[in-house]
């Protein structure tokens, strides 16, 4: 059984935000105003050693969001994806405090202080509803995994910086890249 993971090759990321746009477009049916499931973070912007990394839910093995959720709305699929059920989410925001990547997002269009249902990257795997149903599209966006595809953000990455898929395959590809570069500090940063 595969474990699905994202990996961002920071040597290739050019901060084009194509992944953010691709995600937003693919899951538009589920995303309320102001929600971006993915974002690009740049460090040392404009200075020597500048690096960008595309960040969303990392579908942690021991997910802190899952551990702290008082409503138990998270579940893990057999592919290692951390998904959640919006019907049981109470919008408390504990998951946001617990997540080291800031992945959980909350609607910004409501009244001040009202968080609403949490939204986050689903690895384009939908939710607990029936595959490709109207409810699934409305609550979670597309379900490309069921179609035999991978997340839109990774598939559309122009520089092939954002890798997604079976962790064994993705890490092997990244290892090949690092070996090919052959330079000191060629992997990160």
């Amino acid at each position: 059984m595969a474990t699905l993971k994202f990996l961002c090759d920071t040597k290739r990321c050019i901060e084009c935000n194509g992944c953010v746009t691709a995600c937003k477009n693919e899951n538009a049916s589920a995303l309320e105003w102001g929600i971006n499931r993915r974002r690009v973070v740049t460090i040392n912007d404009g200075k020597q050693g500048e690096a960008s990394i595309s960040v969303a839910c990392m579908h942690c093995d021991d997910a802190p969001c899952m551990a702290v959720c008082p409503a138990n709305c998270f579940y893990k699929t057999e592919d290692g994806l951390v998904l959640h059920n919006k019907d049981t989410c109470i919008g408390c925001g504990y998951c946001l405090y617990a997540c080291p990547f800031g992945a959980p997002q909350f609607p910004k269009s409501g009244a001040f202080g009202a968080r609403g249902k949490m939204d986050k990257c689903t690895f384009c795997a939908g939710g607990p509803e029936e595959n490709h149903s109207e409810a699934e599209m409305k609550k979670y966006g597309s379900n490309r995994i069921a179609e035999g595809k991978l997340p839109m953000c990774a598939e559309l990455c122009a520089t092939k910086s954002l890798l997604a898929g079976d962790a064994d395959v993705v890490s092997a590809i990244f290892r090949e890249r690092v070996a090919y570069r052959g330079a000191k500090n060629a992997a990160w940063g």
Binding site: E78, A146, K149, G165
Partner: peptide, 15 residues
């Protein structure tokens, strides 16, 4: 999930 989870297709291999 058991039925429609990740499965390596021609599309994914091409990716």
């Amino acid at each position: 999930q058991n039925k429609d989870g990740y499965h390596e297709t021609a599309h994914i291999r091409a990716y």
